[in-house]
Simulated scan of single mutants.
Amino acid sequence: MELTTHTAPHATIIRVQAARIDAPVALDFKEEMRTLTHAGKGRFILDLAQVEFIDSSGLGAVVAAMKQLRPHQSLELAELQPIVAKVFRLTRMDTVFTIHDSADIAGDENRE
């Protein structure tokens, strides 16, 4: 699972460089997220623009990434593809996460 980061003015953007977050990659995703968020602070925006499919294991890994954050850190999502957005709506996770249309615009916004 390849994740890349970009520092925006008001957040760190983490881009998922994969078409799927599913059972075979969920553990790697969670560990990579732990490494990236442990070193940073503040807001993290998970850019899911390239993710075309997410299953329950992938959804669980995203939730686990949020739960492992330290105080004063937050995880937001951006650029969900229609099928991925549907999974978040059906599981009501869209009420747990802040979801943005654009990761770059969200990273430029000051939400403090």
Rank of each mutant, 00 (worst) to 15 (best):
M1G: 13
E2H: 15
L3V: 12
T4L: 14
T4K: 15
T5M: 10
T5V: 12
H6V: 11
A8Q: 03
A8R: 02
A8L: 06
A8M: 07
H10G: 03
H10I: 02
H10K: 07
T12M: 02
I13N: 06
I13F: 07
I13E: 06
I14A: 07
R15S: 15
V16S: 04
Q17L: 14
Q17I: 15
A18R: 05
A19C: 05
A19R: 14
R20V: 05
R20P: 02
I21V: 12
I21T: 04
I21G: 02
A26S: 09
A26L: 02
F29A: 00
E32Y: 00
E32N: 05
M33D: 01
R34P: 00
R34Y: 01
T35M: 06
T35H: 09
T35I: 09
T37R: 04
H38D: 11
A39H: 05
G40M: 02
G40R: 02
G40C: 05
K41T: 11
K41D: 12
G42N: 02
R43V: 04
F44I: 09
I45N: 01
I45T: 00
L46Q: 08
D47E: 10
D47F: 01
D47G: 03
L48I: 10
E52A: 15
D55F: 09
S57L: 03
G58T: 02
L59C: 07
A61G: 05
A61S: 12
M66R: 12
K67L: 11
L69D: 01
L69N: 01
R70H: 09
P71N: 05
P71V: 05
H72E: 12
H72V: 03
S74W: 04
L75S: 03
E76A: 09
E76D: 14
E76Y: 01
E76K: 05
E76I: 03
L77K: 03
A78N: 08
A78G: 11
E79Q: 15
E79T: 09
L80R: 01
L80H: 01
Q81V: 01
P82S: 07
I83V: 12
K86H: 10
K86G: 01
V87P: 02
V87H: 11
F88I: 13
F88G: 08
R89V: 13
T91G: 08
T91L: 11
V96N: 13
F97V: 14
F97H: 14
I99D: 03
I99N: 02
H100N: 14
D101P: 13
D101A: 15
S102T: 14
A103R: 13
D104E: 15
D104S: 15
G107M: 01
E109M: 15
N110T: 09
N110D: 15
E112P: 10
E112S: 14
